[in-house]
């Protein structure tokens, strides 16, 4: 599949303070797109503007300027909403309902005709088998998140927007969530995943956008991000001395300078290696620079 399902162009969102005298710049000129079938990681420290951006994408917030388009339409358009599944950060639901009742009501609200078998299967898929008729007020946070995922998957959406979907889940549940996300991606759905768990994003995302203080500080495929500014290690020997290994943090320009320096001293370059880095290291570096 090709083309973008989400297109965010120069998005800005400013909130007035309580007295309206100042404005908080939550998001400052962010642009990115989510291609059909991709899994995009959306990263940033607390207060970076991730949830604000997600709310703009879902039409819950009105951008101060810039535009958000889903399949070329504004986010509030009915035909757009039908194609989206959303898992909020801290899902809260009317507590007097059971998961099955919720799925039925949501199915009606979406105009879907789904039988009980489909709904029971869906609840089983997210790990809520045996809890179908238990009231939600007895659910733990993790169980609410599972229900939230079931509601998001109910319409077999073309885009899944997940805002910290695995926060508060145990490692086993996180693995199950990851597997479902990958299954959905294989089905052809695009996934927009905001998460603090960098290892999770690194494991499943094709691309990532990193925010800091409301601005985009890095974007690219996972491979590009992990290679970006990654250090070189050069092994060389100078006449009359034992081989030396040196780590160069400054990228290609520093490497070139070092090679020139070794050659001027009649040294021999034994090996040049690029050291791989984790997403966490990249994240800390790019968000640290911004601060």
């Amino acid at each position: 599949m090709s083309g973008s399902c989400i297109e965010v162009v120069d998005l800005q969102k400013h909130y007035p303070t309580r007295m309206g005298l100042r404005r908080i710049r939550a998001v400052e000129g962010i642009s990115f797109s989510l291609r059909n079938g991709d899994i995009l990681g959306f990263l940033g420290p607390n207060g970076a503007g991730k949830t604000t951006t997600i709310k703009c994408i879902l039409g819950l917030l009105r951008p101060t300027s810039g535009s958000v388009r889903l399949w070329g339409e504004p986010p509030a358009a009915a035909k757009v909403r039908q194609r989206i599944g959303f898992v909020p950060e801290n899902p809260t639901y009317e507590s007097c309902f059971t998961p099955l009742e919720f799925l039925r009501t949501f199915s009606e609200m979406r105009g879907l005709d789904q039988g009980s078998d489909f709904m029971l299967g869906l609840l089983g898929r997210v790990g809520l088998s045996g809890w179908e008729t238990t009231r939600i007020d007895r659910f733990s946070k993790g169980m609410r998140q599972r229900l939230s995922l079931a509601l998001a998957l109910q319409s077999q959406p073309d885009v899944l927007v997940l805002d910290e979907p695995t926060g508060g889940l145990d490692p086993l549940a996180r693995k199950e969530f990851r597997d479902i996300i990958l299954e959905e991606s294989r089905r052809g759905a695009a996934v927009f995943l905001s998460s603090h768990l960098l290892s999770e994003v690194e494991a499943i995302c094709d691309r990532a956008v990193i925010l800091s203080q409301g601005r985009k500080v890095s974007e690219g495929s996972m491979e590009e991000l992990l290679r970006k500014k990654s250090p070189y290690t050069i092994r060389f020997s100078l006449p009359g001395s034992t081989p030396v290994e040196k780590r160069l943090e400054g990228g290609e320009s520093e490497l070139q300078k070092e090679i020139d320096s070794i050659r001027r001293r009649d040294g021999t370059i034994l090996a040049v290696e690029r050291t791989g880095r984790s997403l966490e290291e990249v994240f800390l570096e790019v968000t640290g620079e911004e601060r």
Partner: peptide, 17 residues
Amino acid sequence: ESGTILPLVAVPISRGQ
């Protein structure tokens, strides 16, 4: 305040609904 409006208005129903 509780956030119950978010999953509703974000996806299955419009603000008018």
